[in-house]
Design a protein around this nucleic acid. Structure first.
Lengths: 191, 191
DNA sequence: AACGAAAGTTGACAAAAGTCAATAAAACGG
DNA sequence: CCGTTTTATTGACTTTTGTCAACTTTCGTT
């Protein structure tokens, strides 16, 4: 498992085998079951997760039980309830592993420690964050400029595996639409 | 002008006067007129701007002339067409100074150079980016979970100056709604 | 393999928001 | 300060999307 993480990160940083061993030793393996909750809302997010296999979902749930998916994290990506993890505040979002998954998790303290200790580690994380921020900007743009059908078409084009692999209700609340609307979008082939 | 930038950054970094002089020397002042375009879409964003006075708008414009505001940047904040600035690709967004403004601008090369040169500079920028990303996440959440009225109410509560200060059409396309809808939201005082 | 639960589909209707158009108000620039 | 241009408001109507409910299908679990 750690080898996959190393392969994912190594293009962005040059470390000795000793440094790699040190870094990787702080990522603890975790196996999850389908729909297992990793973080309940209201608690402070203590871990950043790397998905080796499976899929995580960062989601919101309101008083009426309505859910909305903030992010979906697939193989080879990192994720957590970011505002909570960084600001050390109770999370408004929960984290769930949608599928049985293999994860590597690092604690907040270790994460920060590596930044201060490992040369290039902060740069690597900074770069990753830049990409995450860019992805968020693109998502904001799709939400303010497109209707449901356009957003669905673009998701289908850019990330078809997400649609194939996940329950429609999750795709729907990731797109910010109802499950019924998504079902109708899929039905109509026209325009 | 540079003093304001120094005061804004100094809580996050400890530099000698010489280091400050070095950093600040790379921020060039720029005075803009109302509605002046700082970046046209299709060009690569070369500068990161710090707003000393006034307001910048990062916006999208489609083939039919429909505009959508990606971000608004007020006094004391940084902004640019971020994906273009970082990825060195043509920007899909344009940048405009909505009001006559006083800016400090730093080039991409100088920005990167400071990261490699000034101790603590990367950490400072990393922190700033974390907050920007968190703001983006909050905005995504408001877009996928709330209707127009709720988004308006929250903006009114958290950032009333934005509504007071800016033309309604810009507030509207920042919220992802039409100008007419915004006008009607303002009218109805109920629920 | 079969049962039960969860997810998906569809229809009917309601609510939200967009569009077009006319008018009123406000703001900019000389 | 005045005229021109932009912006805001309002009405009528359309389109999109949501909600509720019934029914079907799929999928997990034993």
């Amino acid at each position: 498992m750690h080898q996959i993480l190393r392969n994912t990160l190594s293009p962005g940083i040059n470390l000795t085998d000793e440094q790699w061993a040190f870094v990787l030793s702080h990522y603890k393996p975790k196996i999850t079951k389908r729909n297992e909750i990793l973080l309940e809302k209201g608690k402070v997010s203590q871990y950043l997760y790397f998905v080796v296999k499976g899929c995580l979902r960062i989601f919101l749930i309101d008083d009426e039980g309505q859910e909305a998916t903030r992010f979906l994290i697939f193989e080879g990506k990192f994720g957590t309830a970011f505002p909570s993890f960084i600001l050390r505040e109770p999370s408004v979002a929960s984290i769930q592993s949608i599928e049985p998954s293999e994860l590597l998790m690092i604690s907040y303290n270790d994460y920060q420690m590596l930044m201060d200790t490992v040369p290039g580690w902060e740069r690597l994380n900074h770069r990753g964050l830049q990409q995450d921020y860019i992805d968020a900007i693109v998502r904001i743009e799709s939400l303010i400029t497109m209707d449901a059908k356009e957003r669905y078409d673009i998701l289908m084009k850019r990330n078809p595996k997400m649609i194939q692999r996940l329950p429609g209700k999750i795709v729907a609340d990731y797109l910010g639409i109802s499950q019924e609307t998504l079902s109708r979008l899929k039905a109509r082939k026209d325009r």
